[in-house]
């Protein structure tokens, strides 16, 4: 992975998690014992380039965000719905901010609605350029996969 793409992912993720959810983001250290991801979502972008951004995170972190921003719910179905909504909105913000970080402020992109994947696996790679970065969000593991399939798909 190039330093540029790694930095872009970390910058975008830090801005999103810290500003919207008040959670700190840090690079991984080998001694970290982190809660493993069990939820994943993906979305595509199209414009000056085409590709996909996916993210996997833990339910624990999603619940923390939901409880920080919304009234806590004791209803399991409602809590699961909130978790899904948080996951999709976090990915949506990471994707938009990552595209600006990586491609600059001029290109226009159309984004697909985020899609929650069943389980924690990221989608199989489908692009020529693939950048992946794992990081620490409040002692939970998060991972972003940034795939660029076509840089000239205008």
């Amino acid at each position: 992975m190039s330093a540029n793409s790694e930095q872009a992912i970390l910058e975008a993720a830090s801005r999103v998690f810290e500003t919207s959810a008040f959670l700190s983001v840090a690079p991984l250290h080998s001694e970290d014992e982190l809660v493993e991801p069990d939820q994943a979502a993906t979305m595509t972008f199209r414009g000056a380039a085409a590709g996909r951004v996916s993210m996997r995170v833990s339910s624990e972190m999603l619940d923390t965000i939901a409880n920080n921003l919304l009234e806590p719910s004791e209803d399991a179905t409602e809590q699961a719905q909130r978790r899904t909504d948080v996951l999709k909105e976090m990915l949506n913000m990471v994707c938009g901010n990552l595209l600006t970080e990586y491609f600059g402020a001029e290109p226009v992109f159309d984004l697909s609605p985020p899609e929650v994947l069943g389980g924690s696996d990221l989608p199989p790679p489908s692009a020529q350029d693939i950048y992946k970065l794992a990081f620490n969000v409040e002692d939970t593991l998060a991972e972003v996969l940034f795939e660029i399939q076509d840089r000239c798909n205008c």
Partner: peptide
């Protein structure tokens, strides 16, 4: 209020 940061889109 959007996640998009394109100055071209903002001008539009």
């Amino acid at each position: 209020v959007s996640t998009e940061g394109s100055e071209t889109r903002m001008e539009e």
